[in-house]
Structure formats: C-alpha cells, structure tokens
C-alpha cells in the first residue's frame, strides 16, 4: 500500500482538503437510505402497488446506490476520472444483466 501513498504525502491538500463532508450530512444520508429501504419494503408489502412495483423498486434502489456512491464514496467531490472509470464498469454490468434478462426472460415469450 505504501507504494501508492506518496502523493498524499507531498500534496495533502489536494488529496483531502476539498471533499470533506460534515458528520451531519453523513448521518442525514444514512437516515435517507434507511427510509428508502423501508419505502421499498412497504411497496413490496402493499398489494395496491403491484402493477408498478418493479419500476418503483428499481428507481428506489438506484437512488440508494447513487447516494452511497456519490456521498459515502465521495465520488461527487472527487476527480471526474474516477466517475468515468467506475461508471463504465457499472454501465457494462447493467448492459450485460439486462441483455441476459432479455435473452432469457423476455424473448422466449415471442416464440
């Protein structure tokens, strides 16, 4: 690990100065995450939502995911290169999952 910590030695300001969040903000985000989770479960449990359940659940969990990545993992405050790197992995993964779901769960219905 030490081989790569050298930048921070020489440039501590660049490395952390700008991307510190406050404790209050972190706690708020934690609370929001918990609330979103309960909303998800509520949507799952309440039968009235059955028709729109899947899209709502996907939107909510995407929101949770973005909150964690942006704030807990500091991507919002960090270098853009990291966002590009990570997002390309996420995009490819999402593409692969959806493509396979389409191939296996959607297309067979047309046969």
């Amino acid at each position: 690990m030490s081989e790569s910590t050298r930048v921070t030695d020489s440039k501590p300001d660049v490395a952390h100065g700008e991307k510190q969040g406050s404790v209050a903000m972190y706690v708020w985000i934690g609370v929001i995450l918990a609330v979103l989770t309960f909303v998800e479960v509520a949507v799952y449990l309440i039968e009235a939502f059955e028709a729109v359940e899947v899209p709502i659940l996907i939107i909510l969990s995407t929101a949770k995911l973005i909150l964690v990545v942006m704030y807990f993992m500091h991507l919002k405050m960090d270098h853009r290169a990291l966002t590009w790197l990570f997002m390309s992995g996420v995009v490819l993964a999402v593409f692969m999952v959806s493509a396979l779901i389409v191939l296996y769960q959607v297309l067979p219905r047309f046969h």
Binding site: L92, F95, A99, L103, L107, P108, F110, H111
Partner: peptide, 18 residues
Amino acid sequence: GWGVWSHHMFTVGLGPIA
C-alpha cells in the same frame, strides 16, 4: 465488442430477434 458476443452462438437457437 461488448455487445456482439452471441455472433459466436448463431447456431444455438436464440431466435430471430436476438
């Protein structure tokens, strides 16, 4: 190159849409 893998699998029987 990520979206073409099934051209190795045309004989597999994925159906005309795929």
